[in-house]
Computed example of a mutant assay.
Amino acid sequence: MTKMPASPEQENVARAFLAARAEKTPLTLYPGARPQTMAEAYAIQGAAIALDGRRLGGWKVGRIPADLVERYQDNRLTGPIFSDEIFDGSAGQVPAMPVYAAGFAAAEAEVLLCFGEVGTRDYDLDSVRDCIADVRTGIEIASSPFVEINRHGPAVTASDYGNNKGLILGPSIPDWRNADLIAMPVEMAIDGDTVGVATMETMLDGPFGSALFLIRVLRARGIAIPPGTWVSAGAITGIHEIIPGQRADAVFDGKIRVSCTITG
């Protein structure tokens, strides 16, 4: 992927998404020419990040469907998570997470990796663990004012912050360096009803593969990864649509729970 600056038209798309998010105005149509490549999507996303001005606290990573990998030349996408939308749920707190009620909203059970010092070295799937300082359970809130955010391919999804609206940091996974994360059972419930059960075997090469992907893509985009940066490594049990007033609970390994409620 080659880094490309945003064109004036792409900057206008970024401004339209920022305005819709700020004013909580639903978008029924994409606000401009839809990006056709991931480079175009990241140009829009990068312009929005610059215009937004908030501090970045992390990045979400999502999977690109197998039948679209060849077209988009990658198997994952990413989007920013802003520091003021990261909440602690590690000690039983149940944060209230706002979404765009008239747009798209979902909750996803995810493993969260915290980067330590990344530096400039090359990594592989094993050595990337060396720059991970913590691994936690968590829930990503996916929400966009564009109701069809996930219906037009990964480039459209990536262009609006990767469809992210926040992150809940759950408890750390004990002895994560030696734990078999891939085989860990994960269950997601909404209002007490189970909506998904899976393991991380569904996540390509797992959460550390997501970290490896993120390092590669952010380096290509010229974006630094300071220590303390979180990566939400990808939906484990699925993308579960949710509405204000509902509660989401993710349970990892049958005993580690992280929860949130949803507001409009």
Score class of each variant (00 low, 15 high):
T202A: 13
S90K: 06
I223R: 12
A19C: 01
C131F: 14
A155I: 06
I139K: 09
E9C: 08
Q73K: 13
A39K: 15
Q246A: 15
A66C: 07
A6T: 02
A14G: 00
A105V: 01
S159G: 04
N75K: 14
I215L: 11
M203F: 07
F17M: 00
A179K: 09
V197K: 14
A198M: 05
L29I: 12
I132M: 09
A155E: 04
P31A: 10
V69I: 10
R257A: 13
N164H: 11
F213Q: 08
N164I: 04
A41P: 15
G153H: 07
F208C: 06
L212N: 05
P171W: 04
M38C: 15
Q10V: 06
I190M: 05
R151L: 14
F17W: 01
P65A: 14
I86A: 02
K165G: 05
P227G: 04
G234E: 08
A224F: 10
I236E: 11
V94E: 11
R257N: 09
L29Q: 15
Q45C: 13
L169D: 02
L167G: 00
H152A: 11
E148C: 05
V13E: 03
T120V: 13
I139F: 13
L214P: 01
P145G: 13
G58P: 05
P185R: 10
T194R: 10
D205Q: 08
V94I: 13
P8E: 04
M200F: 09
L204A: 12
G196T: 06
I225E: 00
V128A: 03
Y161E: 04
T137R: 04
E140G: 07
I132G: 02
F213K: 07
L51T: 11
S144M: 10
S172A: 13
G196Y: 07
A96N: 06
I81T: 00
K3S: 15
T229S: 08
E9R: 11
A101L: 06
A105Q: 03
M203G: 01
I44P: 07
I132L: 10
A19W: 01
R63N: 06
N164F: 07
I141P: 03
S232K: 04
S83T: 11
I64C: 00
R257Q: 12
G234W: 08
A198V: 05
L169V: 03
R177S: 09
A43Y: 15
